[in-house]
Amino acid sequence: MTDPFLILDLLLAGAVIALAIATLTARDLFAAIVLFIVLGLLSALAWVRLSAPDVALAEAAIGTGVTGALLLKTLHHLRYVAGTLGEQAAHGVTPVTPVPMSVIWANAAFCGLITLGLAIAFLDAPLGGPGFDALVADAMPASGVDHGVTAVLLNFRSYDTLMEVVVLLAAVIAVWQIERGLSEAPAPDLSVIWQGFARLTLPAIVVVGTYLLWKGSEAPGGAFQGGAVLAAVGILLLLSRLYVPHPSHRALARWGFVLGTGVFAGVALLVTGGGRVTFEYPPEHAKTLILLIEGLVTVSIAVTLAALFHGREPVALRAKEAGHDA
């Protein structure tokens, strides 16, 4: 008798590929975004089936939840700029703006190169080898945590994780450089029912985000998953206008952006005293240091993702108000 899960896996694999094709060929931007979100959810399921719950959580929280919100916000902005915000309505479509063929071919070439690289790496890897499980298991007692993935991410391979945090920091710096000023696009009119929903879910999201962070030391979860969930708090607050960004909040936001990267890099350098190399945490303090880094990185990720959703540096454009801009 065949494994009953085989049917599920085949269906899942087929659906992921079909959704990817549908997302790329959709003629309506809104439909493409919705298809992308469904694609992310099914990919998360696929990661669960591949016994990678950490990746599944990250895919669901960041790849689907936050990215979906960012894409929808961008669509709202595009419609506002194009002047079609009032027209589109629920039944209308926003056609995809034609992309130059050269851009398409350049994208295809880069994607092809990445696929080729992955294929070579996959074919070169020893088939059915032991992997690094044994190595990680051997080193676990010195890591300060009880979950292999967290040990790898925040101790054995911290440098990679630091770079991921830096990528987010670079993204928010770029966004703040590109767009300044307070948003002119009208916020969607959300009813009282939405306000009630936000009020009920906000405290629960805070608890879930903190739980994911705390659980990370012994089970799937951690800074990125917890941070993405906490970023949802910021997105809900921004959407329901319970929090309106103000130019005077910029200093605090900047501290929030660099907090994680700063502390992460600071700890990495400070432990070099006493004959250790960078990122070599003293085993007796490893758990404390990892929790400190994870906690602050979580705050930074949450603030950064929420700021990316808001999408612009809140600057009061005085010149424009005074009429110099006209």
């Binding site: 309505a89 629920a90 009813s191 029912i193 939405w194 929903f197 879910t201």
Partner: peptide, 28 residues
């Protein structure tokens, strides 16, 4: 908990989509 929050979210989404569609119908 999962049941409660998914039910809450789906009811809220249903309401938002319907309200948006009705508003669009009227404007049309």
């Amino acid at each position: 908990l999962i049941w409660f929050f998914v039910a809450l979210a789906s009811a809220t989404c249903g309401h938002l989509i319907a309200a948006y569609a009705r508003q669009a119908d009227r404007e049309g």
